[in-house]
Simulated assay, not measured.
Amino acid sequence: MTIMHRTNDTTYRLSSVPWRAGPISRRHALMGGAALLAGLGFSGNARAARTLNWIGWDGYQGDEVIGPFKKTHDLSVKFESLTDSGGTFTKLAAGAYRDYDLVVNDVPWIQRMGAAGICEFLDPGEFKETFDSFYPQFQPPFAPLTWEGKTTGLPTRWGWVGVNINTKFSDPDDWTSYAPVFDPKNKDKIGILDFGDWATFQVILYAGINPFKEMGSAELAEVRKVFRALFKNTRLITADLVQAQRTLLDGSALIFLAGGNYIASGLRKAGHMEMMSFVPEPINGLQQGVIWLEAAAVMKDASEPELAKGLIKHLVSEEAGRALAWTEWSACPVPNKHVAETLSAEQRKVIQTDDMWTYYERSLTYQVAPNIDDILAIWQEELSAG
């Protein structure tokens, strides 16, 4: 088994505050080949009248996404790349929220901003037109972005984590569950994309355990057994997206766990429609996939709160949604229901819009797992033992 370790030391770093500083993000690996921008230049005039300070995932700051908003409002955007979802939350909660007007992060961390008192709660009435443009699944009350009945942010882009295979080498009918990853005949044919906690979820769900609920000692013991069995068949564990994609393309691995639609879609977008990303059916009522979801929020005491709210409305608009759904590196669904209507049949096929709600229903929405420290410790122990 080949293990490609990250060089970023945040992979399994634990926070000194009640929330864990999460592992390196999938987008950080996804965008790792791109230059990280410290800020964007002015649009239009040589000197813009106002500036928004923003921290978020790469891709959102692109001119095709926010250029129209900047031009309309004679605005400069100072953007900082987010590379660690939990670590960024910890940083903001420690007081850095005062340095920004806006944040785009994974949903559980946006929700926890409400508990930490560092976000501006949004008035659903003020965003009624925006919510009306959303698919019903994301309209209020949307629990993952609610804290004590108040709205902490708006969803911006999403997808699923389940099975990723190349149909040239693997039959989709063989993957009605994750059972084949444990089959001895598939020894040295299983790949794992090592995006921290994301790498653990599917096989925990297959074992009949909900990773987002508190676990007892018996469940943690079962998690250890499942990890041990998984590593016996694993060919490659890597955080290198390109290496994972190459291994799927040449058939070296039959499947890559933790490789969601954000991985397969990039290959499909490049013409490799043999790549499939899907979620197996629930087992005994327990979903077998995990929904990843990004969201935007306004910081408490933001210097430009109205502009920040306006930018959020823009990010989830049809215009910006088209750009977010079809980036250089991936092609993913967005909450705005009108975006898919404007895409070509080929684009919708790449994004898998015909099947996305099936995979949504077969998945749990990502949360910070209560036992994540235990889970990652067991993962590391079994990995080292193997």
Rank of each mutant, 00 (worst) to 15 (best):
R235G: 01
Y206K: 14
G208T: 03
F227Q: 09
I237P: 08
G208C: 10
T200G: 01
G208P: 01
A218G: 13
F227A: 03
L205Y: 05
A221F: 01
I204T: 04
R235M: 09
A221S: 14
V203R: 04
K213H: 15
Q202I: 08
V203K: 04
L230A: 07
R235F: 07
S217I: 12
L205N: 08
L220H: 04
I237F: 12
N210Q: 06
I209A: 07
E222G: 09
E214G: 13
L230V: 05
A229W: 00
L236C: 00
F201Y: 14
R235I: 08
A207D: 12
N210W: 09
D197C: 02
F212Y: 15
R224C: 07
F212T: 11
V223C: 04
I237T: 14
I204A: 06
L220I: 02
K225D: 12
R224M: 02
Q202L: 13
F231V: 10
K225W: 06
L236R: 11
G216Q: 13
W198S: 14
R224D: 05
A218T: 15
V226W: 08
E219G: 04
Y206F: 15
K232D: 13
T234Q: 00
Y206S: 12
E214P: 04
A221P: 02
E214V: 15
A199P: 03
F212W: 14
T234D: 01
N210S: 12
F212K: 12
F212L: 14
R224E: 12
V203N: 09
K213F: 10
K225M: 11
N233V: 08
S217H: 14
A207I: 05
F212V: 10
E219A: 13
V223E: 00
F212D: 10
V223T: 00
K232W: 05
A207Y: 00
A199I: 09
A229L: 00
M215A: 10
R228M: 06
I204E: 02
V226M: 12
L236E: 02
V226N: 06
I209S: 09
E214Q: 14
N233L: 02
W198Y: 15
F201A: 02
V226D: 06
R228T: 09
E222Y: 00
R224T: 09
K232G: 07
L220F: 02
V226H: 00
R235T: 04
F227C: 01
G208N: 06
V226I: 13
T234E: 02
I204L: 11
